[in-house]
C-alpha cells in the first residue's frame, strides 16, 4: 500500500517529468538549426535564406573520381547521391579523407554549387572490420 504522501510525490514527479520532456522537445525543435552539425547538398539547394558570409558546414560523401590535387589545393565534390556541391580547399586533409568516404567541410558558400572550405574533417561510418573481411565483402558485391 502506498502512503498518501508518496502518492502525492508520484503526482509531482510525473507532472514535472512530462513538463520537462515537453520543454526539452520544444527547445530541441526550436534549436534544430544550431544542433545540425552539417547540411547536406540537398538541404543547401532547397534552403532559401542562405547566409553567404557566415561559416557553415557541408557534409556528405566524397564523390568517387572527383578528387583532384594541384599545388596544395584540393578540389572535390561532396554528394548525398541526389545533389552535389563543388568544394575547394587549401591545406592538409585528415588521413581518413578518401574517395567514397564521408566528409564534413567547414567554410563559406560562394554560391549554391560552390563551397570554399577552411577545414576538412573526415567522417567514418559505423562499420568496423579487419582488412581481410572487407576484401571478402567487396568480392561478394562484385
Amino acid at each position: 500500500m502506498l502512503v498518501r504522501a508518496a502518492k502525492k510525490r508520484i503526482k509531482i514527479l510525473v507532472a514535472t517529468l512530462s513538463l520537462l520532456i515537453l520543454i526539452a522537445i520544444f527547445s530541441l525543435v526550436v534549436l534544430r538549426d544550431n544542433i545540425l552539425y552539417f547540411l547536406s547538398p540537398t538541404e543547401i539547394k532547397n534552403s532559401e535564406n542562405l547566409n553567404y558570409s557566415k561559416k557553415i558546414r557541408v557534409g556528405g560523401m566524397v564523390k568517387t573520381g572527383s578528387v583532384s590535387i594541384n599545388n596544395n589545393e584540393i578540389n572535390f565534390i561532396i554528394t548525398d547521391l541526389s545533389n552535389e556541391i563543388f568544394v575547394t580547399f587549401k591545406g592538409t586533409v585528415p588521413n581518413l579523407f578518401s574517395e567514397g568516404k564521408g566528409v564534413v567541410a567547414e567554410g563559406k558558400l560562394k554560391d549554391k554549387k560552390f563551397f570554399i572550405a577552411k577545414r576538412i574533417l573526415a567522417k567514418h561510418d559505423e562499420n568496423y572490420m579487419p582488412p581481410s573481411a572487407e576484401k571478402i565483402l567487396n568480392k561478394d558485391v562484385k
Binding site: L36, N127, Y128
Partner: peptide, 23 residues
C-alpha cells in the same frame, strides 16, 4: 536524429551489428 560527425551506433539490439566478431 541529427547529422553528427560522430558515427552512428554499431552495436544494435535490433538489427545487424556492424562490428566484426574479431573486434
Amino acid at each position: 536524429i541529427w547529422p553528427t560527425l560522430h558515427q552512428t551506433e554499431s552495436i544494435k539490439i535490433i538489427g545487424r551489428t556492424t562490428v566484426d566478431s574479431s573486434m
